[in-house]
């Protein structure tokens, strides 16, 4: 089983840093969701993990050891873009994988293709985008791998097949497989992932357990007596990551003890103080969005 350690990973293309000093650990048996806006560096991170791109600096280790050819037997990868050979049939792709990987289960691949309603006699060039994704998913999940790296594994799939991929992931997780995946469908990450990391412009901006982030991160909102009321000491409170203020309304993003901050805001003279839960999409958007420039804002969140 894999414990993956990404340490100070950096990948530059000319002057542009696609991944910038990224450090992440993924424990064995976890489902780990990697989130980030387009171009954040998710795919580059995966490629560096797999040796498909050469890191400019930093390292990736599996159980403390660098990637060696034998490691590939244990890793199945679904790339973001199709890597199918246009002139080959789906069945030929399955056969190619059966010959390449000792633990490959061709019968299982057949079942998965049937579940996705894919005719194995079809050539790759005759497949839609979603069907290509489904073929790559079917092949990867038939590998009996210890580690699945899935880059947008539901891209182009209809909602029924998206849910099917999620169930496959949960099934693999239940047998102890480690899964790292990226998705723009935050609802899927919210269901399948236990841990997440958010990266933006190649840098880590947030990581944690989904349920802990939801339990701890809240918005504390209140109405101040007048627009000029001072927020004495509140913006400096270590529990408060960010304070957005528009006229009399103040909205505080807290990373723990929302009830305590609510009391504090109340004693500062605010009325109508309430605590608002955040879902993963809200948490993600706060992590990647710069503070609202139109409001009087104190943004304090940086990479932790």
């Amino acid at each position: 089983m894999s414990t993956i350690e990404i340490s100070h990973l950096r990948k530059t293309y000319g002057p542009y840093a696609a991944v910038d000093d990224l450090s992440l650990g993924v424990d064995s048996g976890t489902v780990f969701g990697l989130l980030g806006p387009n171009g954040a560096g998710k795919t580059t991170t995966f490629k560096c993990m797999l040796g498909l791109a050469r890191a400019t600096a930093g390292s990736v280790t599996y159980d403390g050891k660098p990637l060696v050819p034998q490691t590939f037997e244990r890793i199945a990868y679904v790339p973001e873009r199709s890597v199918l050979y246009e002139w080959m049939t789906v069945a030929e792709h399955v056969e190619m994988n059966r010959r390449a990987f000792t633990k490959f289960d061709a019968a299982r691949a057949g079942e998965l293709l049937t579940a996705f309603q894919i005719d194995p006699r079809k050539k790759a060039r005759a497949l839609s985008k979603g069907m290509r994704t489904a073929v790559m998913v079917a092949v990867a999940f038939a590998r009996n791998a210890d580690l699945l790296i899935l880059d947008e594994p539901t891209s182009g799939l209809d909602p029924v097949n998206q849910r099917h991929v999620l169930s496959l992931m949960i099934n693999e997780a239940a047998r102890g497989c480690t899964i790292i995946f990226s998705s723009h469908q935050i609802g899927q990450v919210e269901r399948a992932a236990e841990q997440i990391a958010v990266i933006d412009k190649g840098r880590l901006v947030l990581k944690g357990a989904v349920d802990d982030l939801k339990a701890d991160r809240k918005i504390v909102e209140g109405i101040l007596p007048d627009a000029n009321a001072a927020l004495n000491g509140i913006a400096d409170d270590p529990r408060i990551l960010r304070a957005d203020r528009a006229e009399r309304i103040v909205r505080l993003l807290v990373n723990r003890d929302a009830d305590g901050v609510a009391t504090l805001l109340g004693s500062a003279g605010a009325a109508g103080v309430r605590v608002v839960d955040l879902n993963l999409e809200d948490i993600f958007l706060y992590a990647v969005s710069p503070a609202d420039a139109t409001a009087d804002v104190v943004a304090k969140e940086t990479a932790r």
Partner: peptide, 18 residues
Amino acid sequence: TVKQLALDLTVNPNTVAR
């Protein structure tokens, strides 16, 4: 079982175990 409920609800098995 943890696995069954995780599959029924389509959520992470470790979440159910917790």
